[in-house]
Simulated scan of single mutants.
Amino acid sequence: MTNYRRAQIKGGTYFFTLACATRTNNSVLTDNISALRHAFRKVKSTHPFTIDAIVILPEHLHCVWTLPPNDADFGIRWSLIKSGFSRQLAPSEKCSQSRQKRKERGIWQRRFWEHVIRDDEDYARHIDYIHWNPVKHGLVKQVKDWPYSSFHQYVKNNVYRQDWASIDEFYGIGTE
Rank of each mutant, 00 (worst) to 15 (best):
M1Q: 10
Y4A: 14
K10S: 14
T13G: 09
F16M: 07
T17M: 15
T17L: 14
L18W: 06
A21H: 13
T22S: 10
R23Q: 14
N26L: 03
S27T: 01
S27F: 08
T30W: 06
N32M: 08
S34Y: 11
L36H: 02
R37I: 05
H38K: 13
H38D: 09
A39M: 04
F40H: 08
R41D: 15
R41G: 01
V43M: 07
V43K: 05
K44S: 12
S45V: 01
T46Y: 06
F49C: 12
I51Q: 04
D52A: 10
D52G: 05
D52H: 15
A53E: 06
I56A: 03
P58K: 02
E59M: 01
L61E: 01
H62N: 03
W65I: 00
P68T: 05
P69A: 09
N70W: 05
N70H: 11
D71W: 07
A72Q: 09
D73M: 10
D73S: 07
I81W: 01
S83D: 12
S83W: 08
S83N: 08
S86P: 13
S86Q: 05
R87I: 01
Q88T: 11
S92T: 12
S92D: 13
E93V: 03
K94Y: 15
Q97L: 12
Q97F: 11
S98I: 03
S98F: 07
Q100G: 04
Q100V: 06
K103L: 09
R105G: 09
G106C: 05
I107Y: 13
I107D: 01
Q109N: 02
Q109R: 10
R110L: 07
R110H: 11
R111I: 02
F112P: 00
F112S: 04
W113M: 07
I117M: 02
Y123F: 15
Y123N: 05
A124V: 04
I127C: 09
I127E: 07
I127D: 01
I127F: 06
D128P: 04
Y129K: 06
Y129M: 07
I130W: 00
W132N: 00
W132I: 12
K136N: 07
H137N: 10
G138D: 12
V140R: 04
K141F: 09
K141H: 14
K141C: 04
K141I: 02
V143P: 02
V143Y: 01
V143R: 10
D145N: 15
P147H: 08
Y148N: 09
S149H: 06
Q153S: 15
Y154K: 15
V155K: 08
V159G: 04
R161P: 03
R161A: 13
W164M: 11
E169D: 12
Y171C: 02
Y171R: 12
G172A: 14
G174A: 08
G174Q: 08
E176R: 12
